[in-house]
Design a protein around this nucleic acid. Structure first.
Lengths: 194, 194
DNA sequence: AAAAAAAGAATGAACGTTCATTTTTAAATA
DNA sequence: TATTTAAAAATGAACGTTCATTCTTTTTTT
């Protein structure tokens, strides 16, 4: 239970190394020994902080999901009008995916593979609640299409992951103009056209 | 070089087993021995058809990408008007992701991880050319927003991957109505609003 | 009967994890 | 404050296992 006292910096270094190695080589090609080396730690030390490799990846996922949503909702207030609130959150998310590109890449990889345990995945989803609440409000007010949240997410949020990955692969560069265009496309796809 | 003559059924069984195991367990947890067992073949036999594990996964990826795009463009003709052509291709893609769910899942996993060699990834991209040509035509005619192809893809095609994965995870079910809504959202996000 | 294909068993390397030991930290004592 | 001491944290080497791949033999095909 009480696994605290131990150096939080060491834990962070391990999480960071995990992200970097999994991003670049994939889960299947990131041995614990490399993670340890990159974190300047003995392989045995990893097991003081994490149960095993799966636990390390699970915790890294949940940690990053929390960081991601914390950033996304930091400046949002439930009192905001729907459109303003959505724009704000959307921009924060776009911002995060550009600035904290490593974390975002790792999340994208986890979300599209079976590498994370189902329970950790569920835990990650919980953090998105404020956005779902905002959409619920938007639907009630007739501002947002009365669609499944999955559809709303697929069209207004998820495309950013694809763009981020394309950018990371060097295929193209996501600049300010692109972000504006992307926001328009996102909003157009979920807003209720009168 | 000439690796033909050998049973094509055996090769297909290996590719199919690879897809199923990687989909369910991830690359890191699909040993060659399991692939062999599922394909009812000796582990050594795999090496008559593929150079090594990486080559097996690469070829599986390129094969599935070819199948995917063949299906997507099968009924499309370049003589079609832009909007009609897009709708047709979009529906075929949606159809493929629902019917050939296993292949589509595998492709999604490959596209979001570093598990495929860059050269195979490039080869896979080539197959999308007809869609890019259609978009080029649409932009010239002022029907489609003058955006980067990456943005067009991110908003009009890629969301289907997210929906497919959500469906596969049992989170929700993608029915006929959803597909119609999804098409509207896709078209709204890329069409040029006058 | 020769060649090609397939098989199962064998191999060596790499991996996740643990063990035995040392080093560091912090509390207790003088 | 300086010294001692016990617990906690950290380590490198070792362990047992699993894996991708190869080797040798058998089966199938031509």
């Amino acid at each position: 239970m009480a696994k605290l006292k131990k150096s939080i910096e060491k834990r962070n270094a391990l999480v960071k190394a995990t992200i970097e190695l999994v991003n670049n080589n994939g889960f299947h090609a990131t041995p614990m020994s490399k993670i340890a080396k990159m974190a300047s730690v003995s392989p045995a030390t990893i097991y003081l902080y994490f149960e095993n490799k799966q636990d390390l990846v699970n915790q890294t996922y949940v940690d990053m999901k929390a960081e991601y949503t914390k950033y996304a909702f930091e400046t949002y207030k439930e009192s905001m009008p729907v459109e303003e609130g959505f724009k704000l959150i959307w921009k924060r998310i776009a911002d995060f995916k550009l600035k904290e590109c490593e974390s975002a890449m790792f999340l994208a990889q986890c979300d599209n593979t079976p590498m994370i345990d189902e329970s950790s995945r569920q835990e990650g989803i919980k953090h998105l609640q404020p956005l779902l609440d905002l959409w619920g409000r938007g639907k009630k007010e007739g501002i947002i299409k009365p669609m499944s949240d999955y559809l709303l997410y697929a069209y207004s949020i998820n495309p950013l992951s694809f763009l981020m990955i394309s950018q990371k692969r060097g295929a193209f560069t996501l600049d300010k103009t692109h972000i504006e265009e992307a926001y328009e496309a996102a909003w157009n796809s979920i807003k209720n056209c009168k």
